[in-house]
Amino acid sequence: MSDAAPVTLSAHNLSRRYGGREVIHNLSLELGRGEVLGLLGHNGAGKSTTLQMLTGALAPHSGEIAICGFDLARQPKQAKARIGFLPETPPLYRDMSVDDYLLFAARLRGMPRGVIAGALAETKRRCGLQDAGRKLVGTLSKGYQQRTGIAQAIIHGPEVIILDEPTVGLDPAQIRDIRALIRELGDAHSVILSTHLLGEVESVCDRVEILHQGRLIYGDSSARMQQYGHQPGFIVNLLAPPDISELQAISGVQQVERLSATRFRVLHQAGVNSGAALLALAGQCGWRAEQLVPLQSSLEEVFVKITRGETP
């Protein structure tokens, strides 16, 4: 997030209880224009509750939310006009046609009459709904219903777009389309995306916040999250392997593990290019190095590490 980007959504110390149980504790969040934020968490971590509070569907027990400077509790009309929300279950009227439904959504958000027709055509194009305009929402397939749900969230050109698990139940091709759409939306708007699919975070989000038992326990850029607790190293194939002690002698190498007769896992110190040294040595000594693959911790591993509270 560049510091120059104007803040479109800011939430301070949100708390929410259900009965006596506090499900969200002192959650604070800030989002700038042109940013895609991924909200990660296990089932029941409080993702949906958080998003409902951010959109005004649910009032927080304490804390403040401002959308583009408008307080959600005191100036709800101005604030809500700048939000587009796709809940977990898309809020679709099954007996309406897609066109009628989207027009209703646009009017409900107070769009001026003159610009609605243009916005409808543009939104349908973006969401790939050009051919579905006259069909009844109830007769559409799950994927098209999801797209219609996204379309109602973006038709009024909101500053903040909040999507609760937008790709659940879609086939891989549709998931790819929707991720591309979210990426595109992220250029001009602010997007919050809740998901438990880590691949989604990897491919579309600039920033990640991890919600665990109602608290934000980790927040960083998604690229840096992948580096979290990561030990630099690589796996190398040596067709004519030397003794393991020779590999251990290379500068910076901390640990060598033999995975098979020709495969070795080498862990080394950060900042030391042990891979290059090994390759140079392999060339000299004729170890016939074949393949060198840097170790990359998957987001899954990182996520599990973070939610378990392990420190690197």
Partner: peptide, 13 residues
């Protein structure tokens, strides 16, 4: 049908 969310999050009282 959970469509109440649409009304609740729209700028209408």
């Amino acid at each position: 049908n959970q469509t109440m969310t649409l009304l609740a999050t729209a700028p209408v009282s």
